[in-house]
Design a protein around this nucleic acid. Sequence first.
DNA 1: AAGGGGTCGTTAAACGTTTAAATCGTTATA
DNA 2: TATAACGATTTAAACGTTTAACGACCCCTT
Lengths: 346, 346
Amino acid sequence: MNKKTSLKDIAKKAGVSTATVSYVLSKKENSGISKQVSQKIRKIAKELHYRPNQIAKSLQSGKTFTLGLIVADISNPFFAHIARIIEDEAKKHRYSVIFGSSDENAAKSRDLIRLLANRQVDGFIIAPTKDSQKEIQLLKKQNIPFVLIDRHFPKIDTDYVGIDNHKAAYNATSRLIGTGNSKIGIIAYSTSLHHMQERIRGYRSALKEHDIAGEDTWIGKVDFLNVKEEVRGAMDRLLRGPQAVTAILFATNTLAAHGLKYIKESGIQVPEDLSVIAFDESDAFDFFYCPVTYVKQPLTKMGREAVKILTGRIADPEKPAQQLILDAKVIVRKSCETSATRLPIS
Amino acid sequence: MNKKTSLKDIAKKAGVSTATVSYVLSKKENSGISKQVSQKIRKIAKELHYRPNQIAKSLQSGKTFTLGLIVADISNPFFAHIARIIEDEAKKHRYSVIFGSSDENAAKSRDLIRLLANRQVDGFIIAPTKDSQKEIQLLKKQNIPFVLIDRHFPKIDTDYVGIDNHKAAYNATSRLIGTGNSKIGIIAYSTSLHHMQERIRGYRSALKEHDIAGEDTWIGKVDFLNVKEEVRGAMDRLLRGPQAVTAILFATNTLAAHGLKYIKESGIQVPEDLSVIAFDESDAFDFFYCPVTYVKQPLTKMGREAVKILTGRIADPEKPAQQLILDAKVIVRKSCETSATRLPIS
DNA sequence: AAGGGGTCGTTAAACGTTTAAATCGTTATA
DNA sequence: TATAACGATTTAAACGTTTAACGACCCCTT
C-alpha cells in the first residue's frame, strides 16, 4: 500500500539523481548543491514525509547505533533501574537500546548474545550468567565491544563496571558485628558467579577479622530456580538450633524480599530478635515494619560509566580493558540497631 | 581488524557464487545444490564462524523482526513487568524488543516513535502520553502497525489492550463504601489521559450510585513532574477539615507508594483511621504495616495479547482495529476492612 | 538429430543509503 | 585561444543479503 518514501522517490519527483538528494538531505549546509535544487529537494522531502531508512544507513556504514543490553531479568527493579539509566546515557550518544533477559541461564544468554550480534548491535552491556565465560571469550575474540556489569569473570580481562562486593559485604557484616551480633548468617545464591562469591567472602572476612568462627550452617545457599521456597528453607535452618543466628545478611533484593516476608509471617521481631541487612534497594526495605538497612549500589554511576566505557571501546577497540570498581554504601536504618534480647526460634 | 565474514568470503573460499552459498545456508534442505557443494560450504561457514548479517536481511526483506516498546518509564515496576512479558511473547514470534521511556512527555514520545520508525521496527507497542494523538494518527496514516497499551484515545480507532478502568475504580470505590466509608477521596494524576479520567469517573459513579454527594476537594490531582510533593499536598488537603475523608483510592502504584509513606510518617492508622485501596501492584503493598488492598491488572494477559494483536496486524494491515478491555481484580486485604472509629486529623 | 527434461549452478537485480570519482558546462587565466 | 579551475550534478560501486531467471551440461526419448 503506502510504501515508505525513499531517496529515489524524491529524486524522481525532483528530476535529479539520488546522490544529489542524499547530499542535500544528509550534509549539513555546504557541499556542492545549488540553493535552488536544495530547496526544491527539501520541499519535496517534506511533502512526501521522507524519513531516512536507518537500516540502509546501517548496512552502508556498518554502524547501527544500537546497544544490546542483557540482564538476568528486566522486571527485577535492580535491572530495570539500570536499564533506564543506560537508556538515558545511551541516548546522549545517539544510541538506542535493545534488551533481553537471560534468567541466569547460560544457554538463553548465549542465544541472546548471538541474536543481537547478528542484528549488528554496536556493542553490548551484559550482566553475564554463570558458565558464559566461553561466550564472553568469543565476543572478545570477535572484537565485538562489550562491557560487563554487576558480575564479571576475573580470569578474563574485559571491560567491567561493578562494586567492590567483598568490601561491601565486609562492611555490612562488620556493622552487624558492631551492634552486638556474633551469630550472623548470610543468604546468597548458590552460584559460582564471582560477585556472589565475593559477597560471601566479604562476610567471612568480617567474621574472621572479629575472631568469630563462622558455622557452615550460617551460609544459606539458594538456587535461582526456586527462590521463594529455598529462602524459606534456608531461613528455617539459620534460625533453628543452638547455633541459631541473630542477624542475617541478604545478598540481593530478591532474596531479601522473600526473607522479609518469611520474617513477617513468623512474627520474628526486627531488630529485637533478629538484625537484618540487605543488598540493593527495594520498596520492601522502606515499608517493612522496621526500616531495613541496605547496601546501596551506585546504580546511576554504574549505568552511566558502563555506557561511557562501551562507547569508548567502540571508538577505540584497541585500548586496554578497564575495570571500574565502585564503592557501595551501607545505608543504616533501624533493622540493625543494637538490641539486648535475642531469642532463637525454639 | 577482524572483519565479520560474509557470504562473499565463503563463496570465494569455496569457489562458488554468493548465490549458491545463500541457497545452501538459508534454504532448509532442498533446492538445487549438490550434497558435495553443500557440505563444503557448510564446513567453510563453520570454520569462518559465519553469522548472517540481519541488517542486510532486513534491508532486502523489509522486515527487521524488531518491536518498538514505548512506555512512560521502564524503571517503573508496572512497565518493567509488562516489558518482560512482551519480551517473552515477542521471542515466541521471533521478535526482539527495543525500548524507550517517554517520561509522560509528548515530545520525547514523538522523538522515540520517529527514531524507532526510522530504524524500521516492524511494529510498536505504546503506552501513549497525553497530547500524542497527532503522532498516533500519523502512525496510523503511515500504516505502521502499533498497539496501544494501558492508555488509549477513544476518539481514534486503534488496536488497544487495557483494562476497564471505570469498572475497576467503581469496584474499588464500592468496596470502600461497602465497608462503611462515606467520605472517600481519590489521588490521581492530573492528566487528560483517558485511563486516568476513567478511573476518576468510576470513582464518581460509585459515589453517585450510593447517593454520596462527592466533594471536589476529595479529588487530589497530582502532576507527573512533582509527584512526591504533590501527593503529600493532596493528602494534606484530603485529610483536613470537616469533610476529611476516611478512605483513599490511589490511582497508580507510584501515587500509592508516596501516599503510604506519608501515612506511615504521619502515624495515621490503616485501616482504623483510614481505608486504602491502590491500583497496580507493589512490594510496598505487601510490606506496608497493614497489607494494602489493590486493583490488580492482568499484566500477563495484557502483554501477551498486545504482542498477539500486533503480530496479527503486521500480518494483516487491513483488519479492523481491535480493542481488548480486560477486567482488573480487586485483591482484598486488610487495608479496607470495616472499622468503627474514624478520626480526621485535627 | 532434434528436442525435452533434469540437475546444479551462476547472473543480475534489488533493498535504501553513502561517497569517491567522473562528467559537463562555464568562466577565468595565461 | 587553449587550458585550467570551478561549480553543479551524475555515475557507479559498495554494504550483505535474497531470489527470479537463465545457462550449461548431461541423459533420455523419439
